[in-house]
């Protein structure tokens, strides 16, 4: 079988398009590169959606944490502690075990039947866990950044007669984002790497559709040789991570474009965030 044929058969296998059965023999480099690359689609899917939703939610939670009202601050604190204080691995397990307990027929809400069965699927259940997880971490970063917004900026906004939402949208939020961005980049890298946990924890691989690591371990198990499949997966992740860093670097330059001589290269120190 030629490599082109393999790519046609397995290039989109992880989303259910192409050959139904996984390769049973050969296990050549072409098969490994194709399937593991195909699995990367899921890693990207989880990372992109979780980050996008987590970004919005984190802003809300971070504002809640800065609030003077304990009714907003306490829940925000508790939420952040719960998700930052426990391993993602355990969160996945618990989420899966809890989600399968929901009634299968659906839940009655105001006379409407809400389907629940899709929640136990990895594409939804794991996405929810990842989103909440990154929300907690990002909220902590955003909170730190909100606390360090220079007082002068806020006073300047007051002087212009800005209040409430306008002041937040035009002054505080952009400054917060600018300050938080280097840490947020690290969080994004961490989250992207954490997507490999999805199929290693509670969530089952539906029809053998899994992520890059799922297929890598499939090949490592079949060939009894971890020295090929895992490095391939690792290589894919290195490339994807470099892309992610580049993308976040572009945003960083845009956020800092009004500051002369600043916001050049961001220094990534993974440890200062998670």
């Amino acid at each position: 079988m030629s490599c082109t044929q393999t790519i046609i058969d397995y290039g989109l296998r992880s989303v259910g398009i192409g050959e139904r059965l996984l390769p049973r023999e050969g296990y050549d480099l072409c098969q490994q590169f194709t399937l593991i690359g195909s699995g990367l689609i899921w890693n990207l899917y989880f990372a992109v959606l979780a980050l996008a939703m987590g970004f919005v939610l984190a802003t809300v939670v971070a504002l809640g944490k800065t609030s003077s009202s304990p009714w907003l601050r306490r829940p925000a604190d508790a939420f952040i502690f719960l998700f930052r204080g426990s391993p993602l691995f355990i969160q996945f397990f618990i989420a899966y075990e809890a989600l399968v307990l929901l009634p299968r027929a659906g839940v009655e809400v105001f006379g409407l039947t809400v389907q629940t069965s899709w929640l136990t699927k990895a594409w939804a259940g794991a996405l929810i866990v990842l989103t909440l997880n990154t929300t907690a971490y990002t909220a902590q970063i955003f909170h730190g950044a909100l606390m360090s917004v220079p007082r002068g900026d806020v006073e300047a906004a007051d002087a212009y007669g800005m209040t409430g939402w306008t002041r937040f949208r035009r002054v505080i939020w952009p400054t917060m984002l600018r300050l938080a961005w280097p840490s947020y980049t690290n969080e994004a890298i961490f989250l992207f790497h954490a997507t490999t946990l999805v199929y290693f924890s509670g969530f089952p691989a539906f029809q053998q559709r899994g992520d890059a690591l799922y297929y890598a371990s499939y090949f490592a198990d079949r060939t009894f040789n971890p020295f090929v499949a895992y490095p391939i997966a690792a290589a894919y992740f290195v490339v994807a991570t470099l892309l992610l860093i580049w993308l976040f670097g572009c945003v960083n330059r845009r956020l800092n474009r009004h500051l002369p001589g600043r916001g050049g290269r961001v220094r990534y120190r993974p440890l200062l965030v998670r």
């Binding site: 954490a194 290693f200 020295f227 690792a234």
Partner: peptide
């Protein structure tokens, strides 16, 4: 190294090696 590659891949790989 660890910036680019998820830690689980190391965990699956290093002990066997």
């Amino acid at each position: 190294m660890v910036r680019g590659v998820p830690d689980i891949i190391f965990f699956l790989f290093v002990p066997i090696a």
